[in-house]
Computed example of a mutant assay.
Amino acid sequence: MYTLDKSDYKSILLKFHLQIEQSPQLLEKASINIDVSKVKNIVYLGLGASGLAGDLLHDVLFDCLRVPMNVIGGYFLPGYCTENTLVIASSYSGETEETVAATKKAIESDAQVLIVTSGGEMRRLAEENNLSHILLPENFRSRHVLGLLFFPLYHFLGKNGFISRYQEDLSDLAKFVKKFSSRNDYPTFSGNILSRSLAYTIENKIPVIYSTAPYLRSVSRSWKDEIEQKAKALAIAGVIPEMNHNEIVGWEWNSDMIKNFIAIFLENKDVDSRILKRIEISKEIIKKRGVEVVEVYADGKSRLEKVFSLVLLGDWMSYYLALLYKKDPTEIKNVDYIRQKMSGTE
């Protein structure tokens, strides 16, 4: 089974804690010349794993950010970008077509630009235009370095006063993540492995994954993305309370196909009481349709521990699901095909 993992993605999962540990050094080596006193809003540009890193930053720091932050994935820049806007443009490869185009528009808008990349066109733009940039290690796929896309920016925002509650020392988080990953390493870990059990539970079902706003909002999207990319299977993501105003009605679908779905609730035991009530009512409605409901709870004490325990659990689960489906968890043929067609190289 493990011969399917041609790029040894499992070892990357086991070393995720190193990305947390390396991030302060990456920021120290970065070329940054941002006048933070002028920044009145932040626009984050990114797609795929880079976009997810931005969404996670926005959600984790929801009540801590001192200025508004919007995450945008696409070719275009919002009209409110001015010299008082900090544009964070993230593309690990440096060749993400949409982000490159939007970054060029940001340069034209006179916004302050901070680029996060490992090279490519984005690095060229940074160097030719004397833009602030954080240079990441090369030779990975972007979804293998979510930690490097997230944590250097977390430290940048914290050290420059954009966050009201900033935890500079993340050594405890790194230890937590290392231990968490070791408990999901089959067959090395001899106890119950939740991620592997979840993969068997989800197998041959269409997972509908729900998380809660604001802090876990993007985690359901993370699970969806990982299932689709690694296992090459479709998944659906939603957020409570938003799904209570639209999607919940979809569970009335009068079709035998509804039995092919499985609902997964990603939860935090410290959630607001009104949100908790909505979760329980939503489960009740879905169970009445004969659909299996699975509850998954965040681990850890701090907000970062809780968020990344669920992100990494989804990462491990989708890895095992890929192996169950006999798929290479790293291969993304359709994404590569679209890139080739768009670039005219085929």
Results as ranks from 00 to 15, higher is better:
residue 160 N to R: 08
residue 223 W to V: 09
residue 176 F to R: 06
residue 218 S to A: 09
residue 130 N to C: 13
residue 201 T to R: 08
residue 227 I to N: 04
residue 170 L to I: 03
residue 180 F to E: 12
residue 220 S to A: 11
residue 214 P to L: 05
residue 154 Y to D: 05
residue 208 V to D: 14
residue 212 T to Q: 15
residue 253 W to V: 05
residue 208 V to Q: 12
residue 237 A to K: 04
residue 163 I to Y: 07
residue 170 L to V: 00
residue 230 K to M: 05
residue 157 L to F: 11
residue 148 L to M: 01
residue 152 P to H: 08
residue 247 E to M: 05
residue 250 G to H: 08
residue 135 L to E: 05
residue 181 S to M: 12
residue 148 L to H: 01
residue 223 W to R: 06
residue 158 G to A: 09
residue 135 L to D: 00
residue 136 L to M: 02
residue 211 S to V: 10
residue 175 K to E: 11
residue 167 Q to N: 13
residue 199 A to I: 14
residue 151 F to L: 06
residue 238 G to L: 12
residue 231 A to T: 07
residue 229 Q to D: 05
residue 203 E to D: 12
residue 234 L to M: 10
residue 155 H to Q: 00
residue 194 L to N: 02
residue 255 S to F: 07
residue 253 W to C: 07
residue 161 G to P: 03
residue 165 R to N: 11
residue 150 F to H: 06
residue 180 F to Q: 12
residue 182 S to T: 15
residue 262 I to N: 10
residue 194 L to E: 08
residue 187 P to M: 02
residue 226 E to G: 11
residue 239 V to D: 15
residue 148 L to G: 01
residue 206 I to R: 14
residue 196 R to A: 12
residue 249 V to F: 11
residue 221 R to G: 14
residue 129 N to V: 13
residue 132 S to Q: 03
residue 130 N to K: 15
residue 204 N to F: 09
residue 200 Y to G: 13
residue 241 P to M: 02
residue 140 F to D: 04
residue 145 V to A: 00
residue 211 S to L: 11
residue 233 A to E: 03
residue 215 Y to S: 02
residue 261 F to L: 09
residue 141 R to D: 01
residue 150 F to T: 08
residue 188 T to N: 15
residue 251 W to T: 04
residue 219 V to N: 12
residue 153 L to I: 00
residue 175 K to C: 14
residue 136 L to A: 00
residue 198 L to I: 07
residue 164 S to F: 00
residue 238 G to F: 04
residue 214 P to Q: 06
residue 232 K to A: 03
residue 195 S to E: 04
residue 234 L to Q: 12
residue 136 L to T: 04
residue 184 N to K: 03
residue 142 S to C: 04
residue 241 P to L: 00
residue 130 N to E: 12
